[in-house]
Design a protein around this nucleic acid. Structure first.
Lengths: 250, 250
DNA sequence: CGACATCATATTGTCCGACAATCCGACAGG
DNA sequence: CCTGTCGGATTGTCGGACAATATGATGTCG
Protein backbone atom coordinates (compact mmCIF):
# COMPACT_ATOMS: atom_id res chain seq x y z
CA UNK A 1 0.00 0.00 0.00
CA UNK A 2 2.72 2.43 0.90
CA UNK A 3 6.14 2.35 -0.60
CA UNK A 4 8.88 2.67 1.92
CA UNK A 5 9.96 6.25 2.02
CA UNK A 6 13.29 6.22 0.36
CA UNK A 7 16.29 6.99 2.41
CA UNK A 8 19.58 7.31 0.63
CA UNK A 9 22.90 7.47 2.42
CA UNK A 10 24.99 10.53 1.78
CA UNK A 11 27.69 8.73 -0.16
CA UNK A 12 25.02 7.54 -2.55
CA UNK A 13 23.55 10.97 -3.05
CA UNK A 14 26.94 12.49 -3.62
CA UNK A 15 27.75 9.83 -6.17
CA UNK A 16 24.44 10.36 -7.95
CA UNK A 17 24.92 14.10 -8.01
CA UNK A 18 28.24 13.77 -9.73
CA UNK A 19 27.01 11.02 -12.03
CA UNK A 20 24.09 13.14 -13.16
CA UNK A 21 26.33 16.06 -13.94
CA UNK A 22 28.52 13.83 -16.01
CA UNK A 23 25.63 12.33 -17.94
CA UNK A 24 24.23 15.77 -18.54
CA UNK A 25 27.65 16.66 -19.89
CA UNK A 26 27.96 19.53 -17.49
CA UNK A 27 31.18 17.83 -16.55
CA UNK A 28 32.87 16.98 -19.79
CA UNK A 29 35.31 14.25 -20.48
CA UNK A 30 38.91 14.97 -19.63
CA UNK A 31 38.00 17.60 -17.11
CA UNK A 32 39.65 17.29 -13.73
CA UNK A 33 37.33 16.80 -10.80
CA UNK A 34 37.73 19.17 -7.85
CA UNK A 35 39.87 17.82 -5.07
CA UNK A 36 38.32 15.63 -2.43
CA UNK A 37 38.57 18.36 0.15
CA UNK A 38 36.88 20.81 -2.15
CA UNK A 39 34.08 18.36 -2.94
CA UNK A 40 33.61 17.71 0.75
CA UNK A 41 33.30 21.43 1.30
CA UNK A 42 30.79 21.92 -1.49
CA UNK A 43 28.59 18.95 -0.60
CA UNK A 44 29.01 19.72 3.10
CA UNK A 45 29.94 16.18 3.96
CA UNK A 46 33.08 14.61 5.24
CA UNK A 47 35.93 13.71 2.98
CA UNK A 48 35.50 10.01 3.81
CA UNK A 49 31.98 10.20 2.49
CA UNK A 50 33.16 11.86 -0.68
CA UNK A 51 35.75 9.17 -1.12
CA UNK A 52 33.15 6.42 -0.93
CA UNK A 53 31.15 8.18 -3.61
CA UNK A 54 34.22 8.54 -5.78
CA UNK A 55 35.03 4.85 -5.50
CA UNK A 56 31.60 4.04 -6.89
CA UNK A 57 32.04 6.30 -9.87
CA UNK A 58 35.57 5.12 -10.37
CA UNK A 59 34.51 1.51 -10.58
CA UNK A 60 31.72 2.49 -12.95
CA UNK A 61 34.34 3.85 -15.26
CA UNK A 62 33.00 7.39 -15.10
CA UNK A 63 36.07 8.63 -13.32
CA UNK A 64 39.63 7.60 -13.93
CA UNK A 65 43.08 8.84 -13.33
CA UNK A 66 45.94 9.49 -15.64
CA UNK A 67 48.93 7.23 -15.59
CA UNK A 68 50.60 7.58 -12.26
CA UNK A 69 48.48 10.62 -11.64
CA UNK A 70 46.78 11.50 -8.45
CA UNK A 71 43.74 13.50 -9.32
CA UNK A 72 40.59 12.10 -10.82
CA UNK A 73 39.39 13.05 -14.26
CA UNK A 74 36.01 12.67 -15.86
CA UNK A 75 36.19 9.89 -18.37
CA UNK A 76 33.78 7.69 -20.19
CA UNK A 77 33.72 3.98 -19.57
CA UNK A 78 36.29 2.28 -21.71
CA UNK A 79 35.40 -0.75 -23.71
CA UNK A 80 37.43 -2.84 -21.33
CA UNK A 81 35.63 -1.55 -18.30
CA UNK A 82 32.19 -2.13 -19.77
CA UNK A 83 33.19 -5.48 -21.18
CA UNK A 84 34.70 -6.51 -17.90
CA UNK A 85 31.51 -5.79 -16.04
CA UNK A 86 29.37 -7.52 -18.59
CA UNK A 87 31.45 -10.65 -18.85
CA UNK A 88 31.73 -10.81 -15.11
CA UNK A 89 27.98 -10.67 -14.87
CA UNK A 90 27.61 -13.35 -17.52
CA UNK A 91 30.04 -15.58 -15.70
CA UNK A 92 28.03 -15.21 -12.52
CA UNK A 93 24.83 -15.93 -14.40
CA UNK A 94 26.40 -19.23 -15.42
CA UNK A 95 26.20 -18.44 -19.10
CA UNK A 96 27.36 -21.39 -21.16
CA UNK A 97 29.67 -21.28 -24.13
CA UNK A 98 26.74 -22.17 -26.33
CA UNK A 99 24.93 -19.08 -25.09
CA UNK A 100 27.83 -16.87 -25.98
CA UNK A 101 28.21 -18.63 -29.27
CA UNK A 102 24.56 -18.11 -30.05
CA UNK A 103 24.85 -14.42 -29.32
CA UNK A 104 27.92 -14.25 -31.50
CA UNK A 105 26.01 -15.98 -34.25
CA UNK A 106 23.26 -13.40 -33.98
CA UNK A 107 25.39 -10.28 -33.73
CA UNK A 108 28.48 -10.79 -35.84
CA UNK A 109 26.82 -11.06 -39.24
CA UNK A 110 25.08 -7.79 -38.52
CA UNK A 111 28.38 -6.21 -37.58
CA UNK A 112 30.01 -7.51 -40.74
CA UNK A 113 27.17 -6.13 -42.84
CA UNK A 114 27.34 -2.74 -41.18
CA UNK A 115 31.09 -2.69 -41.56
CA UNK A 116 30.80 -3.47 -45.24
CA UNK A 117 28.37 -0.64 -45.72
CA UNK A 118 30.14 2.04 -43.78
CA UNK A 119 33.81 1.14 -43.41
CA UNK A 120 36.20 4.03 -43.76
CA UNK A 121 39.44 3.54 -45.64
CA UNK A 122 41.41 3.57 -42.39
CA UNK A 123 39.12 1.07 -40.74
CA UNK A 124 39.50 -1.21 -43.74
CA UNK A 125 43.23 -0.84 -43.45
CA UNK A 126 43.13 -1.84 -39.80
CA UNK A 127 40.97 -4.80 -40.64
CA UNK A 128 43.37 -5.96 -43.30
CA UNK A 129 46.24 -5.51 -40.90
CA UNK A 130 44.47 -7.63 -38.30
CA UNK A 131 43.81 -10.41 -40.77
CA UNK A 132 47.37 -10.29 -41.97
CA UNK A 133 48.67 -10.38 -38.43
CA UNK A 134 46.70 -13.53 -37.72
CA UNK A 135 47.81 -15.14 -40.95
CA UNK A 136 51.42 -14.36 -40.31
CA UNK A 137 51.79 -15.61 -36.79
CA UNK A 138 48.93 -17.95 -36.07
CA UNK A 139 51.52 -20.62 -35.42
CA UNK A 140 52.07 -19.30 -31.92
CA UNK A 141 49.08 -20.31 -29.91
CA UNK A 142 49.30 -17.49 -27.42
CA UNK A 143 49.18 -14.79 -30.06
CA UNK A 144 46.66 -16.45 -32.33
CA UNK A 145 43.74 -16.06 -29.94
CA UNK A 146 44.53 -12.43 -29.35
CA UNK A 147 44.74 -11.81 -33.06
CA UNK A 148 41.35 -13.34 -33.66
CA UNK A 149 39.94 -10.98 -31.08
CA UNK A 150 41.73 -8.10 -32.72
CA UNK A 151 40.11 -9.00 -36.00
CA UNK A 152 36.64 -8.93 -34.51
CA UNK A 153 37.45 -5.67 -32.80
CA UNK A 154 38.64 -4.13 -36.02
CA UNK A 155 35.42 -5.21 -37.64
CA UNK A 156 33.41 -3.62 -34.87
CA UNK A 157 35.43 -0.48 -35.31
CA UNK A 158 34.72 -0.50 -39.02
CA UNK A 159 30.99 -0.75 -38.36
CA UNK A 160 31.24 2.70 -36.79
CA UNK A 161 28.57 1.68 -34.33
CA UNK A 162 29.29 2.23 -30.66
CA UNK A 163 26.83 -0.46 -29.65
CA UNK A 164 28.58 -3.09 -31.71
CA UNK A 165 31.96 -2.03 -30.48
CA UNK A 166 30.91 -2.32 -26.88
CA UNK A 167 29.17 -5.64 -27.39
CA UNK A 168 32.14 -7.22 -29.06
CA UNK A 169 34.48 -6.95 -26.15
CA UNK A 170 32.71 -9.03 -23.51
CA UNK A 171 31.75 -11.81 -25.86
CA UNK A 172 35.27 -12.20 -27.11
CA UNK A 173 36.62 -12.09 -23.62
CA UNK A 174 34.41 -14.98 -22.63
CA UNK A 175 35.15 -16.90 -25.79
CA UNK A 176 38.91 -16.57 -25.61
CA UNK A 177 39.65 -19.45 -23.24
CA UNK A 178 37.64 -21.95 -25.23
CA UNK A 179 38.93 -20.55 -28.49
CA UNK A 180 42.45 -21.18 -27.30
CA UNK A 181 41.57 -24.81 -26.75
CA UNK A 182 40.02 -25.10 -30.18
CA UNK A 183 43.00 -23.60 -31.91
CA UNK A 184 45.16 -25.94 -29.93
CA UNK A 185 43.31 -29.13 -30.60
CA UNK A 186 41.72 -28.73 -34.00
CA UNK A 187 44.42 -28.93 -36.66
CA UNK A 188 42.54 -27.29 -39.48
CA UNK A 189 41.12 -24.47 -37.31
CA UNK A 190 43.84 -21.98 -38.16
CA UNK A 191 43.48 -22.42 -41.88
CA UNK A 192 39.70 -22.12 -41.77
CA UNK A 193 39.83 -18.98 -39.67
CA UNK A 194 42.38 -17.46 -41.99
CA UNK A 195 40.27 -18.25 -45.03
CA UNK A 196 37.11 -16.85 -43.48
CA UNK A 197 38.88 -13.69 -42.42
CA UNK A 198 40.15 -13.13 -45.92
CA UNK A 199 36.73 -13.61 -47.43
CA UNK A 200 35.23 -11.20 -44.95
CA UNK A 201 37.92 -8.62 -45.57
CA UNK A 202 37.34 -8.92 -49.29
CA UNK A 203 33.61 -8.48 -48.92
CA UNK A 204 34.05 -5.49 -46.62
CA UNK A 205 36.51 -3.97 -49.05
CA UNK A 206 34.00 -4.44 -51.85
CA UNK A 207 31.23 -2.98 -49.67
CA UNK A 208 29.29 -6.17 -50.21
CA UNK A 209 27.21 -6.40 -47.04
CA UNK A 210 25.37 -9.59 -47.91
CA UNK A 211 28.52 -11.54 -48.65
CA UNK A 212 30.26 -10.22 -45.58
CA UNK A 213 27.36 -11.30 -43.41
CA UNK A 214 27.18 -14.70 -45.06
CA UNK A 215 30.85 -15.41 -44.58
CA UNK A 216 30.75 -14.21 -41.04
CA UNK A 217 27.83 -16.49 -40.38
CA UNK A 218 29.80 -19.39 -41.76
CA UNK A 219 32.83 -18.32 -39.78
CA UNK A 220 30.93 -18.34 -36.51
CA UNK A 221 29.29 -21.64 -37.36
CA UNK A 222 32.78 -23.03 -37.74
CA UNK A 223 33.47 -22.17 -34.14
CA UNK A 224 30.65 -24.42 -33.12
CA UNK A 225 32.08 -27.27 -35.15
CA UNK A 226 35.33 -26.45 -33.42
CA UNK A 227 33.77 -27.00 -30.04
CA UNK A 228 32.50 -30.38 -31.09
CA UNK A 229 35.74 -31.50 -32.66
CA UNK A 230 37.78 -30.22 -29.75
CA UNK A 231 35.53 -32.09 -27.37
CA UNK A 232 34.39 -29.05 -25.43
CA UNK A 233 30.87 -29.63 -24.14
CA UNK A 234 28.58 -26.86 -25.33
CA UNK A 235 27.13 -26.60 -21.88
CA UNK A 236 30.44 -25.62 -20.32
CA UNK A 237 29.94 -22.62 -18.11
CA UNK A 238 32.07 -19.72 -19.17
CA UNK A 239 34.47 -18.66 -16.49
CA UNK A 240 36.17 -15.44 -15.72
CA UNK A 241 39.91 -15.50 -15.62
CA UNK A 242 39.79 -13.02 -12.78
CA UNK A 243 42.46 -10.91 -14.36
CA UNK A 244 41.91 -7.52 -12.92
CA UNK A 245 42.82 -4.66 -15.16
CA UNK A 246 45.37 -2.92 -13.02
CA UNK A 247 43.86 0.04 -11.25
CA UNK A 248 45.45 3.37 -11.96
CA UNK A 249 47.44 2.13 -14.88
CA UNK A 250 44.89 2.60 -17.57
CA UNK B 1 60.89 0.14 -22.63
CA UNK B 2 60.06 -0.25 -18.97
CA UNK B 3 56.62 -0.95 -17.68
CA UNK B 4 55.69 1.21 -14.73
CA UNK B 5 56.01 -0.81 -11.59
CA UNK B 6 52.48 -1.32 -10.50
CA UNK B 7 51.28 -0.01 -7.22
CA UNK B 8 47.78 -0.74 -6.06
CA UNK B 9 46.14 1.10 -3.20
CA UNK B 10 44.83 -1.00 -0.37
CA UNK B 11 41.17 -0.35 -1.07
CA UNK B 12 41.70 -1.72 -4.55
CA UNK B 13 43.42 -4.86 -3.36
CA UNK B 14 40.74 -5.50 -0.78
CA UNK B 15 38.07 -5.08 -3.41
CA UNK B 16 39.87 -7.44 -5.78
CA UNK B 17 40.34 -10.03 -3.09
CA UNK B 18 36.64 -10.13 -2.37
CA UNK B 19 35.72 -9.99 -6.05
CA UNK B 20 37.94 -12.92 -6.84
CA UNK B 21 36.41 -15.00 -4.08
CA UNK B 22 32.97 -14.24 -5.43
CA UNK B 23 33.87 -15.14 -9.00
CA UNK B 24 35.48 -18.34 -7.80
CA UNK B 25 32.21 -19.05 -6.04
CA UNK B 26 33.96 -19.42 -2.73
CA UNK B 27 31.48 -16.81 -1.63
CA UNK B 28 28.15 -17.94 -2.92
CA UNK B 29 25.15 -15.86 -3.75
CA UNK B 30 22.93 -14.95 -0.86
CA UNK B 31 25.67 -15.40 1.66
CA UNK B 32 26.15 -12.55 4.10
CA UNK B 33 29.49 -10.83 4.03
CA UNK B 34 31.37 -10.49 7.31
CA UNK B 35 30.87 -7.16 9.01
CA UNK B 36 33.04 -4.23 8.08
CA UNK B 37 34.90 -4.40 11.35
CA UNK B 38 35.58 -8.08 10.86
CA UNK B 39 36.81 -7.53 7.32
CA UNK B 40 39.05 -4.74 8.52
CA UNK B 41 40.48 -7.08 11.11
CA UNK B 42 41.07 -9.89 8.62
CA UNK B 43 42.62 -7.70 5.94
CA UNK B 44 44.49 -5.72 8.57
CA UNK B 45 43.38 -2.40 7.21
CA UNK B 46 41.21 0.36 8.51
CA UNK B 47 37.46 0.18 8.32
CA UNK B 48 37.37 3.23 6.06
CA UNK B 49 39.53 1.38 3.60
CA UNK B 50 37.22 -1.61 3.70
CA UNK B 51 34.25 0.62 3.12
CA UNK B 52 35.80 2.10 -0.01
CA UNK B 53 36.34 -1.39 -1.33
CA UNK B 54 32.77 -2.36 -0.52
CA UNK B 55 31.41 0.65 -2.37
CA UNK B 56 33.20 -0.51 -5.49
CA UNK B 57 31.73 -3.98 -5.30
CA UNK B 58 28.35 -2.62 -4.39
CA UNK B 59 28.24 -0.45 -7.47
CA UNK B 60 29.41 -3.38 -9.57
CA UNK B 61 26.35 -5.25 -8.44
CA UNK B 62 28.34 -7.98 -6.75
CA UNK B 63 27.15 -6.95 -3.32
CA UNK B 64 23.73 -5.76 -2.35
CA UNK B 65 21.59 -5.44 0.67
CA UNK B 66 18.14 -6.71 1.48
CA UNK B 67 15.25 -4.32 1.70
CA UNK B 68 15.85 -2.03 4.61
CA UNK B 69 18.64 -4.31 5.69
CA UNK B 70 21.95 -3.28 7.02
CA UNK B 71 24.39 -6.01 6.16
CA UNK B 72 25.73 -6.73 2.72
CA UNK B 73 25.03 -9.94 0.90
CA UNK B 74 26.74 -11.50 -2.04
CA UNK B 75 24.53 -11.10 -5.09
CA UNK B 76 25.00 -11.38 -8.77
CA UNK B 77 24.53 -8.33 -10.93
CA UNK B 78 20.88 -7.91 -11.76
CA UNK B 79 19.80 -7.29 -15.29
CA UNK B 80 18.96 -3.74 -14.32
CA UNK B 81 22.37 -3.13 -12.86
CA UNK B 82 24.37 -4.34 -15.85
CA UNK B 83 21.86 -2.82 -18.22
CA UNK B 84 22.17 0.48 -16.44
CA UNK B 85 25.92 0.44 -16.74
CA UNK B 86 25.85 -0.49 -20.37
CA UNK B 87 23.26 2.05 -21.41
CA UNK B 88 25.06 4.71 -19.42
CA UNK B 89 28.24 3.87 -21.26
CA UNK B 90 26.46 3.96 -24.58
CA UNK B 91 24.96 7.33 -23.79
CA UNK B 92 28.40 8.69 -23.00
CA UNK B 93 29.77 7.21 -26.17
CA UNK B 94 27.18 9.27 -28.01
CA UNK B 95 25.52 6.26 -29.52
CA UNK B 96 22.76 7.28 -31.89
CA UNK B 97 19.32 5.78 -32.13
CA UNK B 98 20.27 4.31 -35.44
CA UNK B 99 23.14 2.49 -33.76
CA UNK B 100 20.83 1.00 -31.20
CA UNK B 101 18.33 0.18 -33.86
CA UNK B 102 20.96 -1.56 -35.91
CA UNK B 103 22.00 -3.65 -32.95
CA UNK B 104 18.39 -4.50 -32.33
CA UNK B 105 18.03 -5.50 -35.93
CA UNK B 106 20.99 -7.81 -35.58
CA UNK B 107 20.15 -9.38 -32.25
CA UNK B 108 16.40 -9.69 -32.00
CA UNK B 109 15.82 -12.11 -34.86
CA UNK B 110 18.37 -14.39 -33.27
CA UNK B 111 16.58 -14.14 -29.97
CA UNK B 112 13.26 -14.90 -31.58
CA UNK B 113 14.70 -17.93 -33.31
CA UNK B 114 16.28 -19.22 -30.14
CA UNK B 115 13.05 -18.63 -28.26
CA UNK B 116 11.11 -20.56 -30.85
CA UNK B 117 13.46 -23.48 -30.57
CA UNK B 118 13.73 -23.70 -26.84
CA UNK B 119 10.76 -21.94 -25.24
CA UNK B 120 9.33 -23.68 -22.23
CA UNK B 121 5.56 -23.81 -21.78
CA UNK B 122 5.74 -21.24 -18.99
CA UNK B 123 7.90 -18.90 -21.02
CA UNK B 124 5.42 -19.14 -23.87
CA UNK B 125 2.66 -18.34 -21.45
CA UNK B 126 4.51 -15.25 -20.25
CA UNK B 127 5.11 -14.19 -23.80
CA UNK B 128 1.45 -14.54 -24.65
CA UNK B 129 0.56 -12.61 -21.55
CA UNK B 130 2.91 -9.81 -22.54
CA UNK B 131 1.44 -9.59 -26.02
CA UNK B 132 -2.06 -9.62 -24.62
CA UNK B 133 -1.20 -6.94 -22.12
CA UNK B 134 0.04 -4.67 -24.89
CA UNK B 135 -2.98 -5.39 -27.04
CA UNK B 136 -5.36 -4.66 -24.23
CA UNK B 137 -4.06 -1.38 -23.00
CA UNK B 138 -1.89 0.11 -25.70
CA UNK B 139 -4.24 3.04 -25.72
CA UNK B 140 -2.47 4.53 -22.74
CA UNK B 141 0.79 5.87 -23.95
CA UNK B 142 2.63 5.52 -20.67
CA UNK B 143 1.91 1.84 -20.36
CA UNK B 144 2.34 0.94 -24.02
CA UNK B 145 6.07 1.53 -24.07
CA UNK B 146 6.60 -0.49 -20.95
CA UNK B 147 4.55 -3.32 -22.39
CA UNK B 148 6.61 -3.40 -25.54
CA UNK B 149 9.70 -3.73 -23.40
CA UNK B 150 8.03 -6.46 -21.40
CA UNK B 151 7.34 -8.35 -24.59
CA UNK B 152 10.97 -8.23 -25.65
CA UNK B 153 12.01 -9.25 -22.17
CA UNK B 154 9.66 -12.20 -22.20
CA UNK B 155 11.12 -13.24 -25.50
CA UNK B 156 14.62 -13.03 -24.11
CA UNK B 157 13.49 -15.09 -21.17
CA UNK B 158 12.04 -17.66 -23.52
CA UNK B 159 15.33 -17.94 -25.36
CA UNK B 160 16.79 -19.32 -22.14
CA UNK B 161 20.06 -17.60 -22.97
CA UNK B 162 21.61 -15.44 -20.30
CA UNK B 163 23.50 -13.40 -22.88
CA UNK B 164 20.36 -12.46 -24.73
CA UNK B 165 18.54 -11.63 -21.55
CA UNK B 166 21.30 -9.30 -20.43
CA UNK B 167 21.64 -7.67 -23.82
CA UNK B 168 17.96 -6.94 -24.11
CA UNK B 169 17.73 -4.67 -21.14
CA UNK B 170 20.11 -1.85 -22.08
CA UNK B 171 18.94 -1.65 -25.67
CA UNK B 172 15.33 -1.35 -24.66
CA UNK B 173 16.18 1.18 -22.03
CA UNK B 174 17.81 3.37 -24.62
CA UNK B 175 15.05 2.85 -27.11
CA UNK B 176 12.19 3.62 -24.77
CA UNK B 177 12.21 7.41 -25.01
CA UNK B 178 12.15 7.43 -28.78
CA UNK B 179 9.67 4.58 -28.89
CA UNK B 180 7.33 6.65 -26.76
CA UNK B 181 7.50 9.41 -29.33
CA UNK B 182 6.82 7.00 -32.15
CA UNK B 183 3.81 5.48 -30.45
CA UNK B 184 2.60 8.96 -29.78
CA UNK B 185 3.01 10.38 -33.23
CA UNK B 186 2.51 7.50 -35.61
CA UNK B 187 -1.14 6.50 -35.66
CA UNK B 188 -0.76 3.03 -37.08
CA UNK B 189 2.19 2.12 -34.87
CA UNK B 190 0.14 0.42 -32.21
CA UNK B 191 -1.70 -1.80 -34.64
CA UNK B 192 1.45 -2.81 -36.44
CA UNK B 193 3.23 -3.66 -33.20
CA UNK B 194 0.28 -5.67 -32.04
CA UNK B 195 0.13 -7.60 -35.29
CA UNK B 196 3.85 -8.32 -35.29
CA UNK B 197 3.75 -9.49 -31.70
CA UNK B 198 0.96 -11.89 -32.48
CA UNK B 199 2.77 -13.33 -35.44
CA UNK B 200 5.89 -13.78 -33.37
CA UNK B 201 3.99 -15.40 -30.55
CA UNK B 202 2.36 -17.77 -32.99
CA UNK B 203 5.69 -18.71 -34.54
CA UNK B 204 7.26 -19.24 -31.14
CA UNK B 205 4.31 -21.35 -30.09
CA UNK B 206 4.71 -23.45 -33.22
CA UNK B 207 8.48 -23.71 -32.62
CA UNK B 208 9.00 -22.22 -36.04
CA UNK B 209 12.33 -20.48 -35.68
CA UNK B 210 12.60 -19.20 -39.22
CA UNK B 211 9.20 -17.53 -39.19
CA UNK B 212 9.78 -16.06 -35.76
CA UNK B 213 13.04 -14.54 -36.92
CA UNK B 214 11.50 -13.23 -40.10
CA UNK B 215 8.64 -11.55 -38.33
CA UNK B 216 10.93 -10.11 -35.73
CA UNK B 217 13.09 -8.72 -38.47
CA UNK B 218 10.07 -7.09 -40.03
CA UNK B 219 8.96 -5.85 -36.64
CA UNK B 220 12.28 -4.15 -35.98
CA UNK B 221 12.35 -2.72 -39.48
CA UNK B 222 9.01 -1.15 -38.70
CA UNK B 223 10.62 0.75 -35.88
CA UNK B 224 12.91 2.39 -38.35
CA UNK B 225 9.98 3.41 -40.49
CA UNK B 226 8.50 4.74 -37.29
CA UNK B 227 11.47 6.99 -36.73
CA UNK B 228 11.14 8.41 -40.17
CA UNK B 229 7.40 8.96 -39.97
CA UNK B 230 7.65 10.43 -36.49
CA UNK B 231 10.31 12.81 -37.70
CA UNK B 232 13.00 11.62 -35.32
CA UNK B 233 16.40 12.06 -36.95
CA UNK B 234 18.23 8.76 -37.00
CA UNK B 235 21.35 10.50 -35.82
CA UNK B 236 19.75 11.59 -32.56
CA UNK B 237 22.07 10.77 -29.71
CA UNK B 238 20.44 8.49 -27.20
CA UNK B 239 20.24 10.04 -23.79
CA UNK B 240 20.04 8.64 -20.35
CA UNK B 241 17.07 9.61 -18.29
CA UNK B 242 19.33 9.72 -15.26
CA UNK B 243 16.83 7.77 -13.24
CA UNK B 244 18.90 6.21 -10.54
CA UNK B 245 17.65 2.87 -9.36
CA UNK B 246 17.17 3.61 -5.72
CA UNK B 247 20.09 2.40 -3.67
CA UNK B 248 19.20 -0.09 -0.98
CA UNK B 249 15.72 -0.66 -2.23
CA UNK B 250 16.41 -3.35 -4.73
C1' DC C 1 3.92 -24.32 22.70
C1' DG C 2 3.84 -20.29 19.76
C1' DA C 3 3.12 -15.36 18.85
C1' DC C 4 4.38 -10.96 20.39
C1' DA C 5 6.44 -6.99 22.94
C1' DT C 6 11.05 -5.46 25.05
C1' DC C 7 15.62 -4.60 25.32
C1' DA C 8 20.72 -4.91 24.94
C1' DT C 9 24.06 -5.40 21.39
C1' DA C 10 26.12 -5.13 17.02
C1' DT C 11 26.58 -2.80 12.83
C1' DT C 12 26.41 0.80 9.70
C1' DG C 13 26.65 5.77 8.30
C1' DT C 14 28.96 9.74 9.20
C1' DC C 15 32.04 12.71 11.28
C1' DC C 16 36.74 14.62 12.98
C1' DG C 17 41.53 14.94 12.99
C1' DA C 18 46.02 13.28 11.77
C1' DC C 19 50.15 11.93 9.08
C1' DA C 20 53.16 9.93 5.46
C1' DA C 21 53.91 9.54 0.67
C1' DT C 22 54.03 11.62 -3.45
C1' DC C 23 52.53 14.38 -7.27
C1' DC C 24 52.70 19.19 -9.10
C1' DG C 25 54.35 23.44 -10.33
C1' DA C 26 57.77 26.79 -9.88
C1' DC C 27 62.33 27.95 -9.84
C1' DA C 28 67.23 27.88 -10.42
C1' DG C 29 71.54 26.11 -12.72
C1' DG C 30 74.22 23.65 -16.02
C1' DC D 1 66.75 22.48 -23.24
C1' DC D 2 67.39 19.23 -19.63
C1' DT D 3 68.10 18.43 -14.73
C1' DG D 4 67.91 19.00 -9.72
C1' DT D 5 65.60 21.09 -5.81
C1' DC D 6 61.87 22.58 -2.96
C1' DG D 7 57.43 23.84 -0.87
C1' DG D 8 52.62 23.19 -1.18
C1' DA D 9 48.73 20.51 -2.36
C1' DT D 10 46.46 16.14 -2.65
C1' DT D 11 45.67 11.46 -1.93
C1' DG D 12 45.87 7.07 0.83
C1' DT D 13 45.45 5.36 5.21
C1' DC D 14 44.86 5.42 9.89
C1' DG D 15 42.60 5.83 14.67
C1' DG D 16 38.76 7.06 17.24
C1' DA D 17 34.11 8.75 18.03
C1' DC D 18 28.94 8.86 18.07
C1' DA D 19 23.98 8.58 16.55
C1' DA D 20 20.61 5.71 14.42
C1' DT D 21 18.88 1.42 13.80
C1' DA D 22 18.78 -3.59 12.46
C1' DT D 23 19.46 -8.01 14.90
C1' DG D 24 18.98 -11.35 18.01
C1' DA D 25 17.98 -12.79 22.62
C1' DT D 26 14.88 -12.34 26.22
C1' DG D 27 10.79 -12.36 28.66
C1' DT D 28 5.51 -12.28 28.53
C1' DC D 29 1.11 -13.67 27.48
C1' DG D 30 -2.42 -16.17 24.99
Amino acid sequence: MFDPLGYAPAYWRVSEAIRTRILRRELVEGQALPTETELARQFEVNRSTVREALRKLESNGLLGRRRGGKRLYVTRPTRESVGGGLSQALALHRARVVDVWEALQAVQPGIAAAAAERRSPEALCNLEAAALQFARRHAERGLAVGDVATFFDALGEASDNAVFMLLNEPMLRLLKPSLAIIIDRVPQARARIEAAQQQIVAAVAARDAATAAAWMSRHVRDFRRGYEVAGIPLSTVVGEDFDPAAPGLS
